[in-house]
């Protein structure tokens, strides 16, 4: 009786330990699963934001003006200067624009930086197309180097009518270990 019980206990314990191990694996499985769901729903996928859009001739919509705001963020203060040359502009959907961001390396050494873009509101992301961007590749900076970096974009005229203001922001990461993984 007691031996059988012990055997039952052992079997159930092992099964539950297996369950726990499965749950641990599931935690990691959520990572690819998350990308899949982002792909399906088309939200928040950084890979899309970091890819140049192929823009065919799009008709301008002269009647419509969308305000585009430019924002620059740094993950921590002190080691970089990073700003857009203009804070905002009015843009016609369908027309190609180019603006500049300026970055200066204050880290005191040669390094590599990677800009990570974000477009708000999220609904506008799919309609904000960058044909050229300094965020597409890691940026090498010499010690104390200051550089102007362009971004070219076109707003898809199919941008929902309810949106009249789009914010393009970048976080500028100094990161020589991680940038390789991204590209």
């Amino acid at each position: 009786m007691s031996e059988m019980r012990e055997q039952n206990n052992r079997r159930l314990t092992l099964r539950l330990l297996g369950f726990a191990a499965g749950a641990f694996a599931f935690g990691f499985a959520l990572v690819p699963l998350y990308d899949v769901i982002c792909d399906i729903t088309g939200v928040g996928n950084p890979k899309d934001l970091l890819r140049a859009s192929n823009v065919q001739a799009i008709e301008h919509d002269e009647s419509r003006l969308v305000t585009v705001e430019f924002v620059a963020d740094l993950p921590s203060v002190g080691s970089w200067e990073f700003r857009p040359v203009i804070a905002e502009m009015k843009a016609n959907p369908g027309r190609l624009y180019e603006i500049d961001y300026v970055a200066r390396n204050l880290t005191g050494r040669d390094t590599v930086a990677q800009a990570i873009p974000n477009v708000a509101p999220g609904k506008a992301t799919a309609f904000f197309r960058k044909t050229e961007c300094f965020c597409f590749i890691p940026q090498n900076f010499a010690k104390d180097e200051e550089r102007v970096m362009p971004v070219r974009f076109v707003i898809d005229p199919n941008l929902p009518k309810s949106i009249d203001r789009v914010t393009l922001s970048y976080v500028f990461y100094d990161n020589s270990t991680r940038v390789a993984a991204l590209n």
């Binding site: 998350y34 928040g44 990677q114 990570i116 991680r178």
Partner: peptide, 17 residues
């Protein structure tokens, strides 16, 4: 780079997990 944005990770994913 699970969550570190500079390597292509997503901090929002951490919140989901």
């Amino acid at each position: 780079s699970f969550f570190a944005a500079s390597g292509g990770g997503d901090p929002v994913m951490f919140q989901h997990i």
